[in-house]
Write a protein that binds this DNA or RNA. Structure first.
Lengths: 183, 183
DNA sequence: ACAAGAAGAGAACGCACGTTCTCTCGGGTT
DNA sequence: AACCCGAGAGAACGTGCGTTCTCTTCTTGT
């Protein structure tokens, strides 16, 4: 097997397992089994679990934000297009393997232990904030703190959906967001 | 040492350690050291780590919501008193050992593994929702989903503060909440 | 004072896991 | 055909941890 495809398969398995079961719960052997990559190769690609966790978070950040951007680009909404973010969330929450935000989860699990994880979560939210801010500017919305306000609603909706208590969290957050933004 | 005080000291140690470092990271021996209760006694009070985790979450829920209620009762705000919730959050976020919501953290860490933890998080948020709803009713606010909307802002603010990105998360959430509620 | 039982300190046990090592096998080179 | 190199399977090693066991000590009742 090619080293690049091994790398890819390991990352794919890590993302699936870490996201669904948590990071500490999933052992390297489970990743070996899921990926079909031998332990030796696995440690050639990622010399320690730490580095695999870091790679998982990095890849998850890139993929999630790309998916969001693609969705927003493909689903223009009438008024401020940033509202499409909540439609994206709505679809995400309904997916069967949804288990909250990987970064909030990782922060809760390892934020008190690993500086690296803390920074990964911080960076993810910061980049999301920057993207939201860009969309707002492109819509000519300059209200102070509007991006931060939307981030409160986004993260609140994710948590609400993750608890399984509120199936309409995304739609409710969208409704609140709509009242915040000038038409 | 009395069995009741042992129980209490163990719970106190568990709350401190689980909250600050996460649940899986903290071993029973660390709880023994922090509480000063011998391992034998510890296992007399809590026959397994599972039960101690459940007790930790139960106690944390009761204590946190009592602290919130006490704060709201002691700090009446001019208009809708439920806004005091965000003042409570603001003070909480500034405390040096703040590390996010214990239930969001536990959900992220063990939500994919332990049904018990998942339900504890769900119940905590549900009870908070009920309390917010009560405060809204007492203020004569009957807007549809107002309590859910506030919960989005509360959880969003907690996450925003936990990442360390937004020191003004509580105040921003309060400002958004104020625009949602009729004067 | 002495027996008896409780309680603490910490060793011990079993297991899981991160990481490394070994053995074997297949495939390419001379 | 003989050899060598890389790769996979999985055993092995060290460690940490949940849980239990043992030994010693201290208290208490008579």
């Amino acid at each position: 097997m090619d080293v690049d495809t091994a790398h890819e398969r390991v990352l794919e398995a890590a993302e699936t397992l870490f996201y669904s079961h948590g990071i500490q719960t999933v052992g390297m052997d489970a990743i070996r089994a899921e990926s079909g990559v031998s332990l030796k190769r696995l440690y050639q690609c990622f010399p320690a679990k730490n580095t695999l966790v870091a790679a998982y978070l990095h890849r998850r950040d890139a993929r999630w934000r790309r998916d969001l951007s693609d969705f927003v680009a493909a689903h223009p909404t009438p008024a401020p297009r940033v509202l499409a973010v909540f439609d994206f969330l709505d679809r995400w929450f309904a997916s069967p393997d949804f288990r909250g935000c990987a970064f909030i989860n990782a922060l809760g699990e390892l934020g008190g232990t690993s500086e690296e994880v803390r920074l990964a979560a911080r960076d993810h939210k910061q980049r999301l904030h920057a993207q939201v801010d860009t969309w707002l500017r492109e819509d000519g919305i300059t209200a102070a703190n509007a991006a931060s306000h939307l981030l409160l609603l986004i993260d609140g909706a994710i948590v609400s959906a993750a608890t399984g208590l509120n199936p309409h969290a995304a739609q409710q957050a969208r409704a609140v967001a709509a009242t915040l933004l000038p038409l």
